[in-house]
Computed example of a mutant assay.
Amino acid sequence: MADEETRPSLRERKKRRTRQAIATAALRLFAEHGYEETTIADIAAAADVSPRTFFSYFPSKEDVVFAEIDDRLAEVAERLRRTPGETPMETIRRSIVDVLEAIVAEHRDYGAVQVRLVLERPALRARALQRLLDAQDAIEALFHELCPGISEIDAVAASGIAVGGMQAVVAHCRREGYDPLSMRTALDRAVDLVEHGLNSVDALSRPSP
């Protein structure tokens, strides 16, 4: 019963597929024709939607570059809820591993394009930095929810370790063109390193009542 209540509805699944189709079509066109040369009308046509539908999912062409990042961060926020008897660290690892499965599978052919666009364009770099800072703030707030006794500095440092460490490894793997198996191996190692750093925070290792 609980699984049925948390499973996305047919409408939600359709919306996610449409959003993913738009993002994938955009990255493919950016790779084939260039970022500046690709219009929103081009992206909409390639995804078999109208420009109006595009704007119902993304405010601008710049935002479509970050579609996957935004979706994965939203997933982490959804999953990072404490389970009775589980330590915060166990919750964090479970949530991150679930999300990494999607990262490895998504944008397999165009992940490097996404990274290159961000590195080459100052406006996109600025947006990427803002998203990184927003993600750290959001994860910090979730850490406070997971362990109400955690200190402010511990929560700030822990969110920086978790978000910064995983983001850096994902970007590296895509920039260097890692195949899915190699990328998963690298991300597993990153999770181990992040967990090692977070284990020094006592509040994250206390089981819930």
Rank of each mutant, 00 (worst) to 15 (best):
F66A: 10
M89S: 13
E62N: 15
F66W: 08
T38E: 14
V76K: 07
E86A: 12
T39S: 15
R17I: 13
R7I: 08
R81N: 09
A26H: 08
L119C: 06
E62F: 03
I69M: 08
F54C: 00
D48C: 08
R52Y: 00
A21P: 04
I22Y: 00
F30R: 11
T53C: 00
V115H: 09
A23N: 04
S95W: 02
R94E: 07
E62P: 07
R121F: 04
I40C: 00
T53I: 08
L117C: 06
T18L: 08
S95Y: 03
D63Q: 14
R116N: 12
D70V: 12
E78K: 11
R19W: 03
T38M: 12
F66I: 13
K15C: 04
D109M: 02
R125L: 09
T53A: 01
I43V: 15
A123I: 06
A77T: 07
E68Y: 13
S9E: 01
F54N: 00
F54L: 01
F58N: 06
V65L: 04
T91E: 13
F54W: 03
E106R: 15
A26C: 09
I69K: 11
A23Y: 02
S9V: 11
A46N: 08
R28Y: 06
R72D: 12
E90M: 07
R11H: 13
R81W: 02
A41V: 04
R19H: 12
G111V: 06
E37M: 13
R125G: 13
A44F: 01
R52D: 01
E37Y: 11
F58S: 04
I22L: 04
Y110A: 05
V113L: 04
A44L: 02
T91K: 03
I92P: 08
T38K: 11
Q114C: 08
P88Y: 09
R7W: 06
P8S: 03
D42Y: 05
A77L: 11
L124W: 05
R13W: 05
T53P: 00
A31I: 03
E106M: 02
E101C: 01
V97N: 02
R7L: 06
F58W: 08
R28H: 14
E68W: 11
V104L: 03
A21H: 11
E90R: 15
D42S: 11
Y110T: 15
T24D: 13
Q20C: 06
R116I: 02
R116H: 13
A67I: 10
T83Y: 07
E32K: 14
E106Q: 08
I103W: 03
T18V: 15
I22K: 00
E12C: 02
L27H: 12
A105W: 02
V99E: 01
R93F: 04
P8E: 00
F66M: 09
P59V: 09
R108F: 00
R93L: 02
G85W: 07
